[in-house]
């Protein structure tokens, strides 16, 4: 029986004692492509932080492959927003990808194994960063750096990948390249949880959508329902406008 990559059961989480998310129950299923939409401050990134074990929920339970996030998060790949990086850091694209190979659960390692290097090569190929793999990250465009971060997340051969606004501040051409990579990843059986503002993502291979704004409405298709529009954006849609 396949394990559920990520499950939230009645999770309430927030910062400084103030909950941002309340009573969230949600699953990222095996082979899923789940888009999480919602307004700024609605708790989308908080949800990712809880799944990755970076934030302890106030209430409820989170499981990653049936274990606590602290034990299971190493089986996940994580792609943060490219804008949060210090572009002056002296690191080439391919070395940044290699940092995704480190898994402390395998114990101390002085060097990368041949198998790990092959895995990094596959990730570089899958994310299509070969032409600029030798460039310093400061010399890459936003879209190129985002693809490097996707390759880094894939390098450790994750069973599911979580992305935080990967197309934010990218032009439409670069965004569609990112979605193409995500569709490709998902077609290989890797579950994808995509936090996004971009409603175009629903036509880019997404299988299910969840709208999060303090609480969550979860759908079984990529269709954004009127209830989701109301929860996420305060827009009331009539039945005829569906």
């Amino acid at each position: 029986m396949s394990e559920v990559p990520v499950s939230f059961s009645g999770v309430t989480a927030g910062y400084g004692g103030a909950p941002v998310l309340r009573d969230i129950s949600l699953e990222l299923r095996d082979g899923d492509f789940l888009a999480v939409i919602g307004p700024n401050g609605g708790g989308k990134t908080t949800l990712l932080r809880v799944a990755l074990g970076l934030l302890e929920p106030m209430e409820g339970e989170t499981k990653v492959f049936g274990e606590s996030p602290a034990k299971g998060a190493h089986r996940l790949g994580y792609v943060p927003q490219h804008g949060t990086f210090d572009r002056r850091y002296p690191i080439k694209a391919e070395e940044a990808v290699m940092t995704g190979l480190r898994d402390a659960s395998r114990g101390f390692q002085l060097r990368y194994t041949e198998e790990e290097k092959e895995s990094a090569e596959r990730a570089i190929e899958m994310a299509g960063i070969g032409p600029f793999r030798g460039k310093r990250i400061g010399d890459l465009s936003g879209g190129q750096l985002q693809r490097v971060l996707i390759a880094r997340a894939l390098a450790g051969s994750p069973e599911a990948i979580l992305l935080d606004e990967p197309t934010a501040s990218l032009d439409p051409e670069m965004s569609s390249k990112v979605y193409e990579i995500l569709r490709n990843i998902n077609s290989k059986g890797i579950a994808v949880m995509l936090v996004t503002h971009d409603l175009d993502a629903m036509s880019q291979g997404v299988k299910r959508v969840a709208c999060v704004n303090g609480r969550a409405i979860i759908g079984e298709s990529p269709e954004i329902t009127p209830e989701m529009f109301e929860l996420g954006y305060g827009i009331r849609l009539g039945r005829e406008s569906r």
Binding site: G53, A73, E95, T99, A104
Partner: peptide, 23 residues
Amino acid sequence: AVLYRDFLILTFDETQAKISGLR
């Protein structure tokens, strides 16, 4: 020399270091 890789991950992206299970 021994901790080079772990220090690289920590200083490049602390979040990634935490997810990798590094202390």
